[in-house]
Design a protein around this nucleic acid. Sequence first.
DNA 1: CGACCTGTTGATTTAGATCAACTTACGTGG
DNA 2: CCACGTAAGTTGATCTAAATCAACAGGTCG
Lengths: 242, 242
Amino acid sequence: MATHCRNCPIRKLDLFAAMTSDEVEFMQRFKVGELTIDAGAPLISEGANTPQLFTALSGLGLRYKLLPNGRRQVINFVFPGDFLGLQAGVMNEMTHSVEATTPMRLCVFDRSELWTVFRNHPERAFDLTWLAALEEQFLGEAVTSIGQKSALERVAWAFSRIYRRMCALSLDVNGDIPLPFRQQDLADALGLSLVHTNKTIAKLRDRQLANWSDGRLRIPDIDALEELGLVDHAELPKRPLM
Amino acid sequence: MATHCRNCPIRKLDLFAAMTSDEVEFMQRFKVGELTIDAGAPLISEGANTPQLFTALSGLGLRYKLLPNGRRQVINFVFPGDFLGLQAGVMNEMTHSVEATTPMRLCVFDRSELWTVFRNHPERAFDLTWLAALEEQFLGEAVTSIGQKSALERVAWAFSRIYRRMCALSLDVNGDIPLPFRQQDLADALGLSLVHTNKTIAKLRDRQLANWSDGRLRIPDIDALEELGLVDHAELPKRPLM
DNA sequence: CGACCTGTTGATTTAGATCAACTTACGTGG
DNA sequence: CCACGTAAGTTGATCTAAATCAACAGGTCG
């Protein structure tokens, strides 16, 4: 039994911009159901022309691309509130895959209705563009981190980003957050080898800047970590939720 | 004297999707002028909240980010047809800078009119989102190249991308294209040192896969180069022109 | 002419990759 | 209930792709 958008479990969180009840009702018409998938399950595959768009409600996942030589680049991690499938929505083809890391619950929209959003609800269309611009911004930062930073800086950058996002989702529990990814996932996200990533994480642990173990990440001093990671200090803005 | 959109110098090129005359007239109302800038001039700076949006008409430029440690990441190169300033348009802040490499001519739009595009011309709003999604796709590919490919593969990838784009703009002249960037620009785009970039370019020259000298790039066999660069063979689609 | 910018080439160093073991934790099936 | 296989994390030894350092050449410009 799908939740009504009125009772959306995440809409009220700090991270998200307020919606008028009008907007909520509009999104409800656009929504076609809910999807629950297991940990490890694929959600979208590269090259596919999926008929669906998703908003992640709970759980974590990752977007990635595979190369012909077998290497994998993790484009980014998927958090609650992320909108998935926009590329397919506008360009009819995904250029990366998405899979669940933990069990996930997602809100499902019908792609063919996307056009009616642009026609009938320009505010929501604007929000969609806003999300696309945010993604572009994030990827610009990722390119910069991977292209110009040392391993230690990269891991610090990634930890900061993830930590801030999880906190904004109120998923932090007395100062630490769940972080159920494998070290290999982080390595593939940052363009580092698994072994070197492991040693770099250990170094951050030694310096008491970040402790990632047993699936949880604890950061005693986020400001110190962000300084090390050369993180631009743009506060993360309230984002629209689709 | 600004050109009327009806006489837009680039609209008819293969690369761009056809526009109805209705759309052309609408864009004309949105247009507030033309800008010509010198080689080397800054166009947009990171952190700024520019009141203008641009479409590049001619010339080449680059987008980049600077780090506190003085390093620079070139996010990508700017070609005719690129739309600049969307981030500021929707999020009120640019997170990268843009500067001209050659003299450039740009079409200027008033940012405050952006909203009327969403309200009155949903097709054009959709196109804007399409462009944002394309940029996201490109950056995903860039992250993958920088994160997972060897220096030789990265340079081959970059050359292929640039070459294809310039050809689609009909800027190729008997098999080669103008490429007025410095080796340092390419190095900063690919996360490589200047010296190593130079040696890698020389290696491609030796192997007769690509010859970049005197500001021109000649590629005898683009397919061989793309294979080496592990380029996804998605043809570049007709893109909307704003 | 000298200063500066871009490109080139060789010598040396190093951050991070690769290789190889070993550990702990979990399942699964006999 | 235990043996075995597999996945994830850890650690040390070795290798290498690319960074850094240094010097020089050709052009251009004041």
